[in-house]
């Protein structure tokens, strides 16, 4: 199970966002953080792979070109979490997750769905939210429900667009730990767009750093998150140091003119 991206152009009809993306093959079970400043195309890249916007180039998964995959195989493989939170409606969390499975995963039996929902809600620690209306939840809680909806379908390719943007520290760690575990256990590949460099450093196997010129770097966290790349990507002066527990951490000193 490998994801390979070659000569990929992404963007909209009137505006190309990133051109000619060529990445080394991404192996099963690996988690890749997609980093870069605002408006650089992180979301656009994930949406393109998820089949929501058109792209050109070759993207293959498990040896099959994504664009030529049968629709149901494609839907089953993809687990895309959009940046927008599930909207605040009178739906309860369980219904949202259940209906998503019922709508597109007709191959799963009722027992399988129930079992999977139970496992995911338990793993994420959101069982108490199951029968609560989304309208009564905080943004962070809705984000957790959105993530549960993705994980319940057990996709082989996780495309998560800022999955921790609305979460406090506890839930940020919880989410990243869960995704990490899921990837390691099932061999799923995860692409996680994020602004949190420290979470990325700690949980991801590889970092893909984008800037205005396209792909700036891709590789193991400590190799690519250098002061030079921080400057080129974000326009900041920064350092990567080791904390007392031995984890690498990024310290941003100041913004510089770009």
């Amino acid at each position: 199970m490998t994801l390979s991206i070659q000569h990929m152009d992404v963007g909209y009809r009137t505006r190309r966002v990133i051109t000619d993306i060529n990445l080394p093959p991404i192996e099963a079970g690996s988690l890749v953080a997609v980093l870069g400043p605002n408006a650089v195309g992180k979301s656009t890249l994930l949406k393109s792979i998820a089949g929501i916007i058109k792209y050109s180039g070759d993207v293959t998964f498990e040896g099959q070109t994504l664009s030529s995959m049968p629709r149901h195989t494609f839907i089953r493989a993809m687990g895309y979490l959009p940046q927008t939170l599930p909207q605040a409606t009178t739906l309860v969390a369980y219904e949202l997750v259940f209906s998503a499975c019922r709508a597109v995963r007709t191959d799963l039996s009722l027992a399988e769905i129930e079992h999977s929902i139970d496992a995911v809600f338990k793993r994420l620690g959101i069982e108490s939210l199951a029968l609560r209306r989304l309208a009564e939840m905080s943004g962070g809680q809705r984000q957790m429900v959105g993530l549960a909806q993705v994980l319940v379908r057990q996709p082989k390719l996780l495309l998560l667009d800022e999955p921790t943007s609305a979460l406090d520290l506890h839930w940020q760690l919880n989410v990243l730990e869960t995704i990490r575990e899921e990837a390691t256990k099932t061999g799923a590949i995860g692409l996680v767009a994020s602004h949190d460099l420290n979470l990325a450093l700690r949980f991801c196997d590889q970092l893909l750093i984008l800037n205005r010129d396209g792909v700036l770097a891709m590789g193991a966290p400590v190799d690519v998150l250098t002061p030079e790349n921080l400057r080129l990507a974000y326009g900041i002066e920064g350092r990567v140091e080791q904390c007392s527990k031995g984890y690498p951490i990024v310290l941003a000193d100041r913004a510089i003119a770009v």
Partner: peptide, 8 residues
């Protein structure tokens, strides 16, 4: 967005 993301 959510609906589209699951392939509807």
């Amino acid at each position: 967005d959510q609906a589209r993301s699951i392939g509807i």
